[in-house]
Design a binder for these strands. Structure first.
Lengths: 187, 187
DNA sequence: GTCTATAGGTGGATAGAC
DNA sequence: GTCTATCCACCTATAGAC
């Protein structure tokens, strides 16, 4: 191994992807470094050559996954020239498949209360990501800040609550209710 | 000790109150039975005479704390004859002091993603509590289900996100944005 | 860079005295 | 019913061979 100079980069990316999936599914405390490295196809010992601690990985993974997920939802991956498509974002984000979290899910929603319990560094990262989304959507739509914040709460909060709920019907009704608050009138 | 037949009931209540506070602050995994029993003024060993497991306590504590918090916010504790006061609920729930969680905070918001990661029993309890709130508010206001669900997302999601955020200004703006979506026009 | 092995700490749950 | 003491499983992080 290690023949390729890119090899370490690829390993790092595999770890980050595995971490995003597992943290979203089980949270920080219930995800072991063992689990992550197994999912990435390696063993425990190799971990600390890529990240200095589990905490650092969590932070890196949060930033990485949130940006990927919003970028992916904001514009068609097959048409990278397209700009910010808010309608597409809302429908992708509030799609019934999102709270199921098969492929991981947005950490802004899946890990809200998990992050609220961590140290200031992680919370700062979360805050910065939220502010980035706020400014980006504001610039794209021209809506005032309060309206956009409310939209973000309906998206992130809606998915978070839908994921906790144990009843398919209620979950769909929740997502529909949020969609209806977002799509028709954009205030 | 144990002279009073009510003594066990009092101990149980002390444990439940301590659990509500600590679970809200630190989540399930970072709250030890040790911590809870110390906060309640006892030691580890006594715990299992009141609850059969940490999981069972979590469930009991969730139900207990959610109902207390909503009952307290819905009607003036000094005037138990008053009915459901939605305006009061919204303002109490979205008060800037709530996300700080000094006295514990609503578990529906503080523990959303924590609960999403637990077993079906806990998620069923959460779902039932949410449905109870939905029906209660619907009956009190006559609004349609979708509108009430959206209101609940703005309240619960708003507090959950505000708690994760690390910036006083943004936190207040979030809470205000949610309040403005709830108070003026009740759709 | 990745492996195996282990140190070192933590916490749920149980046993048994009082 | 509450206490102290302990068992046992788990997990982060490090050491050292390859």
């Amino acid at each position: 191994m290690a023949w390729h100079p890119d090899h370490k980069q690829h390993s790092r990316k595999r770890i980050l992807n595995a971490a995003a999936t597992l943290f979203a599914r089980k949270g920080f405390d219930n995800t072991g470094i063992n689990d992550i490295m197994e999912e990435a196809g390696m063993t425990r010992g190799a971990f600390y050559h890529h990240f200095s601690s589990k905490r650092e990985l969590y932070q890196e993974s949060l930033r990485n996954a949130a940006i990927n997920r919003f970028r992916q939802a904001l514009q068609d991956p097959d048409d990278l020239q397209s700009g910010v498509d808010l309608k597409r974002l809302i429908e992708t984000y509030l799609d019934p498949s999102h709270p199921l979290g098969i492929d991981g899910g947005c950490p802004m929603a899946f890990l809200v209360t998990d992050i609220a319990q961590r140290d200031e560094t992680i919370r700062s990262t979360y805050t910065g990501l939220l502010q980035g989304m706020l400014h980006r959507v504001q610039a794209a739509t021209g809506s005032d800040q309060q309206a956009v914040l409310r939209q973000l709460v309906l998206m992130i909060g809606g998915v978070a609550i839908a994921r906790a709920v144990n009843n398919d019907e209620l979950r769909l009704q929740l997502l529909d209710a949020c969609k209806q608050g977002l799509l028709p009138t954009q205030e």
